[in-house]
Write a protein that binds this DNA or RNA. Structure first.
Lengths: 167, 167
DNA sequence: CCGATTCCGTTTGGTAGCAAACGAAAACCG
DNA sequence: CGGTTTTCGTTTGCTACCAAACGGAATCGG
């Protein structure tokens, strides 16, 4: 209950209650959700300033490279879904990755509306050197958690994801 | 163990291992970190498409309004820190909020480099109507979790935040 | 005092992110 | 076939986000 012990947060809670008047406040949910967001921001910033910047990659760029590495050449639409990005955003990310020489676009002969994206040799080399370091960095981010706690965390988050994604 | 049970993920794990060869993979950490990010994205998107869009606010805009509501008029630098944004980003967010009529800037008389930001009447009215709904939405996002699990989740994330933010 | 330094918010230039509109290509169907 | 509809990826227009550079204002040191 480290959060509850913080005078900073107790103060905030008191202020919020004052603003809310009689209306009830679901403090546990508020804390859970806001911590999800803060953790994600912190972890992303850390990754981008640390490992990723050395390779000239953003979080989204890394994700895209990683997906292509694991799954191989893919159509734009599938790649976007796998990266959890809109088609429009993926177009931009791929454009940047192309500029950096990490990926290449290929027109599909049988259907000229379609385009596939694949790693270049440089992209392959980069992700193969980068991923082990990224995975090590991930380990550092959760180093205060036991193996069980990591699994517990992943599972709790999975339930939130399922709820949030469902329409 | 929901994640491990998914054939989709097992397949991915196998592929990653194949790419990695003999090098070891810290799968628990990978899953924990990637789920943090996916959960944050899902929760944010859901909030922006649901509650927030009705009020013409982004996640960052809402956060800013909320901080100003709880803490009152603030200097730009403090507001940026409290919102966990860079000064530059906050300038933009405040500009948007000003355009929408939610906040106003005030030059500080005693030190003309400084600027404070405060809620307008419209901003106050908005956040007072919005926050209860946002808090209800937060509850929905974690409705699959017991109170203990919410606290557990918040605590596990707090440890990650502390690790990631420390330099 | 006054020159150098520090402090503060904004601007600049870049990437990332989305929805909606678009244009070309394929598929559908009468 | 040929017109309509659907399916693609991209473009457009917007907000958000950051680091670094900037420029005005305050402060510090002699």
């Amino acid at each position: 209950m480290g959060d509850r012990a913080s005078p900073r947060l107790l103060d905030a809670e008191r202020r919020i209650q004052a603003r809310l008047g009689d209306r009830q406040l679901d403090f546990e949910s508020m804390l859970a959700v806001s911590n999800i967001y803060r953790a994600a921001t912190a972890v992303r910033r850390r990754a981008e300033k640390g490992v990723l910047s050395e390779f000239g990659l953003s979080w989204g760029g890394f994700t895209t490279l990683w997906v292509l590495w694991v799954w191989g050449e893919m159509r734009t639409a599938d790649l976007a879904e796998e990266c959890d990005l809109s088609k429009a955003t993926l177009t931009g990310v791929v454009k940047t990755l192309e500029k950096r020489g990490f990926v290449e676009r290929k027109q599909v002969e049988s259907d000229r509306r379609r385009v596939t994206v694949a790693l270049t040799d440089a992209g392959l080399d980069t992700i193969e050197r980068l991923f082990p370091r990224f995975n090590r960095y991930e380990g550092e981010m959760v180093r205060e958690l036991s193996t069980n706690q990591k699994q517990e965390l992943a599972e709790l988050l999975r339930r939130v994801i399922v709820t949030a994604v469902a329409e």
